[in-house]
Amino acid sequence: MAVLSTGPIENNLSGGNRPTQQVTIKMVNTDSINTSNVLIEGYFLNGTRTLYVLQSVNLTPGQVFSQTYYANLDG
Rank of each mutant, 00 (worst) to 15 (best):
Q63N: 05
T35Y: 05
S32A: 13
I25D: 09
I9P: 04
T50I: 11
P19E: 09
G47L: 03
L51C: 08
T20N: 04
P8Y: 06
L54M: 13
V23Q: 04
G62T: 04
L13M: 09
R49K: 12
V57H: 06
L54I: 04
V28R: 14
Y70C: 05
E41Q: 03
T6W: 06
L4K: 08
I25C: 01
N29V: 13
V38H: 01
R49H: 09
G15W: 01
S36M: 02
L54P: 08
Q22S: 07
N29T: 10
N58A: 15
L51I: 00
L73E: 02
L45D: 08
N12Y: 14
N37G: 02
N12L: 14
Q22K: 11
S32E: 14
G62C: 09
L39V: 12
T24S: 15
L39C: 00
V23Y: 00
S14H: 05
Q63G: 06
V3P: 04
P8K: 04
V28D: 14
V23R: 05
S32L: 11
E41I: 04
T68H: 07
Y43W: 06
A71S: 14
G62K: 06
G15Q: 11
S5K: 12
S14I: 10
Y43S: 10
K26G: 06
G75V: 07
T20E: 05
N46E: 13
V28L: 15
L73F: 13
G16L: 04
L59Y: 10
G75F: 01
P19C: 06
G42L: 06
N12W: 10
F44R: 09
T30M: 10
G16W: 07
N46C: 05
T50M: 10
G47H: 04
Y70A: 12
S5Y: 05
K26A: 12
E10L: 03
A71E: 00
T24I: 14
N72Y: 09
T24L: 14
Q63A: 14
R18H: 02
Q63Y: 11
L59E: 05
G16C: 07
N11C: 09
A71H: 05
M1P: 06
N37A: 10
L59I: 09
L39F: 07
N12P: 00
S32F: 03
Y52V: 11
L54G: 04
Y52M: 04
L54W: 04
Y52F: 12
N58M: 09
A71N: 02
S5F: 02
G15K: 03
V28K: 13
Y52S: 04
E10T: 02
R49P: 01
D31N: 15
S32T: 14
G16R: 00
N12I: 09
T48Q: 11
Q63K: 12
P61H: 00
M27H: 03
G7S: 09
V23C: 03
R18P: 02
L4R: 10
F44G: 00
F44K: 02
N12G: 11
T68A: 15
Y69M: 08
P8H: 02
T60K: 12
G15T: 00
Q63S: 14
P61Y: 00
K26R: 15
T68K: 13
Y69E: 06
P19A: 07
Q67V: 12
M27V: 11
I9M: 10
S32C: 08
A71W: 11
G7M: 01
D74A: 07
L45R: 03
N34A: 15
G15Y: 08
T68E: 13
V64F: 07
